[in-house]
Structures are given as structure tokens and as C-alpha cells.
Design a protein around this nucleic acid. Structure first.
Length: 285
DNA sequence: TGATATGTTATCTT
DNA sequence: CAAGATAACATATC
């Protein structure tokens, strides 16, 4: 569930603390979580962090990168050389008290030149970290669709993407090869904001509606970043803390709640492309 | 116990 | 052949 705003939250936080550091050591506890030759990045200086859709990238001075995809449950928790997030008992029931250094779902541990550490924690083990050089990274990125908050994300391009597909508009929003960074949360809330039914065929969304949807997507994504991401389930920031967008969802995860427009209707839930889809039958046509 | 949640990709099916 | 639908991956929670 880390989507664009959640990954951006992590990028902003890590960019501050990792820039200029050197990786001293990488401990891989679960092989599938780390792919490639770790020697390529050990001893190399970190220039900064970038993000492409939901992909987080650590850039190194030697034209190598760590590409990181958190998939559904990945976390990156950073502990400085002094602080420990918690002491004591590992695997406490209270999730605030996860002891990341020893926890069973911590799969990769980075140690930096100043002895601070970054823990890759991933309950479902779908996430990964890959060593890729600049050209390979560029090839990966070229597969991604138009990226919100870049020059590419224009109304013209957005309309073109919608016009090209007969699939339900929600699936198009979530297709990373068409629009990068939007997942289930922001697709649901964006469509509600625009008053568009998630099942509508993308190419049948008219000009006026697509303008609304374009602006709404930007709005809900910005809101996500403002609240530090959505932690309805597994997302945590680099301090192990929850985001707060879940307190402000419009329709996502709100089955049976009253419509936020106060129309008196209750939020419905259906399956679309195998994913939970939430909307107001009254306000979204 | 079994259904559910999730992002992406691989593998059917139409 | 292309587009659409579904299974697979893993695990905790309800």
C-alpha cells in the first residue's frame, strides 16, 4: 500500500539523513529481499534519493543505485547511532514497540559510515531491493506511465491515457504503465472527489469529467503527502510512525459509512480487478 | 478455519 | 494476437 505519497514521505525523510553517508555493511537475512551484488554499493557515497512512481531509488556516486520497491508491506526504518526506537522485548504485541534490529520480518540491515542503521522490514516479503546501474535504471523507468508532479503530467497527456483504454477508469488510474504512483487508496478517493463511478469505461469519461479527475488526483495525492501517508494497514515512516491520512479518507476503507458529501447515502464496496473498490452510488455516476 | 487485504507479474482465457 | 481476467507471491488479522 505504499503508493506515491507514502514513498515520497519516506524519500523526504531519508534524503535528509542519508545524503553524504557511505554504506559500511549490508546484512541480508532473507535472500529474496536483496538482489544483485552488494559490493557495488558498499564504500560508495550516497548522492541522494529519488522516486519514480512507487519506486524509491538511492543514488550513489559511482553510477550505481539501490532501487527499492516496498510492494504492500515494506518499511524502511532508520535508527541513528545513538537512538534505539525501543529497547527490550522483541515482537511485542503493541506495534509501536517492534524491535526492528531483531524482529523476524526485518530482512535487510544497512550500516552506514556513522554507525547509523537502516532496516528493511517486510511482513509479506513481496518487496525488494535491487542493485542497478544508471542505464538499467533508465530502462526500468521508461516503462512507467505519466508521473504526477512532473512536467509530463499534463491534462493533455492525462486525457490521452484515458481515451486509449476501454477498461474501467479505476484500473487505468492504477496501471503503473499508464499513470505511475497511483494505487488503490488514491484511485478510490480521487474518483469520489471527481464524482466518477469507478467502473466507467475510461474512454467514455468526458472532457469536463477528466478535468475534474485530473485536479482531484493531484489534490488527493498532495493531501496524502501532507498527512505523511496513509497507514490503514502496514505503512510506517522511517521513524516507525504511522501516517495520518487514514483519518481523512473520503471513501477508501469506508464501507457502510455515510457519504462525505452528506447526501445521506452509505458508501458501497465492490470488487474491481480483484481489488476493493469503494464509492457512493449517489454521487458517482 | 477460511476469507480478506495488498502491488505487480505471470499465466491463463476469451 | 491482443485484451481481459485471474492466480501467484506471504502472512497477519478478523
Amino acid at each position: 500500500m505504499p503508493e506515491l505519497p507514502e514513498v515520497e514521505t519516506i524519500r523526504l525523510q531519508l534524503n535528509k539523513v542519508l545524503k553524504g553517508l557511505i554504506i559500511k555493511h549490508i546484512e541480508v537475512r532473507f535472500d529474496k529481499s536483496f538482489q544483485g551484488d552488494k559490493k557495488e554499493v558498499i564504500g560508495k557515497k550516497i548522492l541522494g534519493l529519488s522516486r519514480y512512481g512507487k519506486l524509491l531509488v538511492v543514488n550513489f556516486a559511482n553510477k550505481q543505485n539501490l532501487a527499492i520497491h516496498l510492494k504492500m508491506s515494506g518499511r524502511l526504518v532508520y535508527l541513528s547511532n545513538k537512538s534505539r526506537l525501543v529497547g527490550g522485548h522483541p515482537q511485542q504485541k503493541n506495534e509501536w514497540e517492534i524491535d526492528y534490529p531483531t524482529h523476524k520480518h526485518t530482512h535487510v540491515v544497512f550500516t552506514f559510515s556513522d554507525n547509523s542503521k537502516l532496516y528493511f522490514w517486510d511482513l509479506r516479503k513481496f518487496g525488494w531491493i535491487k542493485v542497478v546501474d544508471n542505464s538499467k535504471l533508465k530502462a526500468q523507468m521508461s516503462k512507467l506511465g505519466i508521473e504526477p508532479f512532473t512536467d509530463n503530467f499534463t491534462l493533455f497527456n492525462f486525457r490521452k491515457v484515458l481515451k486509449m483504454s476501454k477498461k474501467p477508469v479505476k484500473l487505468v488510474l492504477m496501471d503503473q504503465q499508464k499513470i505511475s504512483g497511483v494505487g488503490n487508496i488514491y484511485a478510490n478517493d480521487g474518483l469520489f472527489c471527481a464524482g466518477i463511478h469507478p467502473s466507467r469505461k475510461a474512454d467514455k469519461v468526458n472532457t469536463k469529467e477528466s478535468v475534474r479527475l485530473f485536479n482531484c488526483l493531484i489534490k488527493v495525492l498532495k493531501n496524502g503527502i501532507r498527512y505523511g501517508g496513509a497507514s490503514s494497514q502496514n505503512f510506517r515512516d522511517t521513524q516507525g510512525q504511522k501516517g495520518r491520512l487514514q483519518e481523512h479518507f473520503l471513501v477508501y476503507d469506508r464501507q457502510g459509512w455515510l457519504c462525505p458529501n452528506n447526501c445521506g447515502n452509505k458508501i458501497a464496496k465492490i470488487q474491481l480487478g480483484g481489488r476493493g473498490t469503494y464509492f457512493c452510488t449517489n454521487c458517482q455516476k
